[in-house]
Structures are given as C-alpha cells and as structure tokens.
C-alpha cells in the first residue's frame, strides 16, 4: 500500500450564499498526526463531514487509501464528528455492539471491553448512555472510534467537555496510537492540543486553506522572546537600532521580540548587558503556534 492515506482535490461546499469551503486541497500521509486548525466556522467540521460521507460536496473529490470515496473505506476509519451520537436508552456496551455490527467485527465483546478500559469507562459499561456526563459521552465516542483497530482516526474536537486529567489522558492515547503507524486527523481550535500531538498542520480560514506544512514549518524559523528592563525607553531604542530584532508586540511592561532560531536567550542577555542594560525579565514565549496562528488568521 502506498503511503498516501487521504487525498483531497478542490473540495468546495456552500450553504445557500455562504461559501463554507472553497477549493480545498490536502494530502495526508500514513503515520502522521494531522491537525486541522481554524477559528470557529472556518470549515473544519464541514471538511470532515464531507470526507466521512454525511455532507455532500458541491464540487471536488477525495480519496481514502487511494480507493476513492467508497463506503467500505469508512469501516477502516474510526471517527468522532462534532458530538457523541449514541442511543440514549442503550448501555455503553450495547451502543458499541451496534457500531461493531456496522463495522463487521466478529465476536466483538473482548474488543469492546478493551476500548472501554482504554478510555476509563469500563466500570460504567452497563450504564445507559443518557446517564453519562458530557465528558463520559465524549470518552465513549472515542472508544467507539477505536473499535476495530482502524488504520485512521478522525477526531473532531476530541477533548471537548473533558476535564484536565481527561484531556491529558486522551493526548497520551493519541500519541500512543500514532506510534503504531496509524494516521490521526484532528480538528481543533485548541492550539495547545494540536501543538502537543500533531506532526503536520493545515490552517483554514473562511473555508480556505491558508497554510499547510509540518509543525516545524508552520511554527517557523523564528523564536519569540519576552524581555523587559527597568529602563524601557533605552531598551526600545536599542531594539529599534538592531535590524535583526523585530518587535512582535510591545507594552509598557514588556516587549515580545521576534528573533531568528539561532538567537538564544543567553546571547540576547549578553547583547543587552554589553550595551549597558540589565534585563529584569527574559523568557521564551512558549505558545509559538498560537502566536503564529493568530498572525496567520488575522
């Protein structure tokens, strides 16, 4: 099998007069954790809806496993789209048994128990879905996506409604699964989530692809460093004189500098010290994807 898991060509969709998606082209390779990023209403869920056969595209096409848009493909894709969708009057196990039947999984009980343990729902396996909290519903949806050990996972806002511990657990689960050469596609607007697990990122805005690349390419060649001094005017002056440093954001209290990857906090500290300024604050700005993202979608 070739290593292209998903190929999307010129996908478009409009609702009445709103263009939800225009001419989207994507390629996802096997083994990547692919993040689909974008603000609310940017077309993430529309894209996944089309790829999973529930929304009709206006034009364009897509191909899973180089096998077109056949129904059978979806049996090898575990998906969580928008909300956890289950029969409220059935227990967790009975709901998963229906999914197993659809996916043609023979003798599913051991597998069902295994995925329920994976998401910490085993103790509640015989409780009805309607008695579950939002976080438990979300975890059941993830368990359902894992059923049948599919080669691809499609997760739309997977940590929605989970508590911090749950978020960390899901993140570890995703990282664990991705090690087995599985492909994972995650749509999210929580940048932290994407940055911690994804290898590749595509950024959408108003239904258009703004940028696509590996996470290193997106985060870019720049570092962001926060500096401050008791003499802010002299600090500002020095920065203005130096062509290599750009001001990303500045306030009265601190300045966020955009510097090349080679510039370390150490070298920066040395530079200012030599010019007679003692820094009162020196910190690497960690949320670089967020910074990039906000700049890209501006």
């Amino acid at each position: 099998m070739s290593n292209i898991i998903l190929q999307v060509n010129g996908l478009s969709k409009s609702y009445k007069d709103v263009n939800a998606l225009s001419d989207l082209n994507l390629q996802v390779k096997q083994g990547t954790v692919f993040g689909l990023l974008g603000p609310n209403g940017s077309g993430k869920t529309t894209t996944l809806g089309i790829l999973l056969g529930v929304i009709r595209q206006k034009s364009g096409n897509y191909s899973w496993f180089e096998n077109g848009d056949k129904t059978e493909n979806r049996k090898n894709i575990g998906s969580l789209l928008e909300t956890p969708n289950f029969y409220p009057y059935l227990s967790a196990v009975r709901n998963l048994k229906i999914v197993a039947k659809i996916k043609n999984i023979e003798a599913p009980t051991p597998q069902i128990e295994e995925v329920l343990k994976e998401v910490n729902l085993f103790d509640r396996k015989d409780s009805k879905f309607k008695t579950f909290s939002l976080g438990m519903k979300q975890r059941l949806a993830i368990a359902s996506a894992l059923l049948g050990d599919p080669d691809v996972l499609v997760l739309d806002e997977p940590t929605n409604g989970l508590d911090p511990q749950g978020i960390a657990e899901i993140r570890e689960l995703i990282l664990k699964i991705s090690k087995n050469n599985k492909t994972i596609i995650i749509a999210s607007h929580i940048l932290d989530e994407i940055e911690k697990v994804c290898t590749d990122v595509a950024i959408l805005k108003f239904g258009k692809l703004i940028k696509q690349g590996t996470i290193e390419e997106i985060i870019g060649t720049e570092n962001y460093i926060i500096v401050a001094s008791t003499d802010m005017s002299k600090l500002t002056q020095l920065i203005d004189e130096n062509a290599e440093m750009g001001v990303f954001k500045s306030s009265e209290k601190e300045i966020i500098l955009k510097v090349s990857k080679e510039t370390t906090p150490e070298s920066l500290n040395q530079f200012f010290f030599d010019k007679g300024i003692v820094l009162s604050q020196l910190k690497v700005h960690t949320q670089s994807l967020e910074t990039q993202f906000l700049e890209i979608v501006k």
Partner: peptide
C-alpha cells in the same frame, strides 16, 4: 449520521 460515519451507505 453516525451509522454512515461508521461505515453504512
């Protein structure tokens, strides 16, 4: 919707 996502036409 979910039945289709899971693999029915």
């Amino acid at each position: 919707k979910q039945n289709i996502i899971d693999g029915l036409s």
